[in-house]
Amino acid sequence: MMMPSCKEVTRLVSEGLDRELGFGERVALRVHFMMCKGCRNFEDQMGQLRKAMQDLARDQDERHA
């Protein structure tokens, strides 16, 4: 994969949470992240979303005990 656009990056970041990305895909992401703060933030947000879902699964206990 050559220079992906931000839109394509969002897709890759999401898939990276569900499958192992190929070498080329990972390199393309790294290169893109170096230049693009927006996509770096997006990647962080996806991590935060995943963590929030885990907190939700755990926290349902306490909140609705």
Partner: peptide, 14 residues
């Protein structure tokens, strides 16, 4: 996204 696939509104840190 813009036509070229770049963010219209860049995601901000959460």
């Amino acid at each position: 996204f813009r036509a070229n696939g770049h963010w219209k509104d860049r995601p901000q840190a959460w």
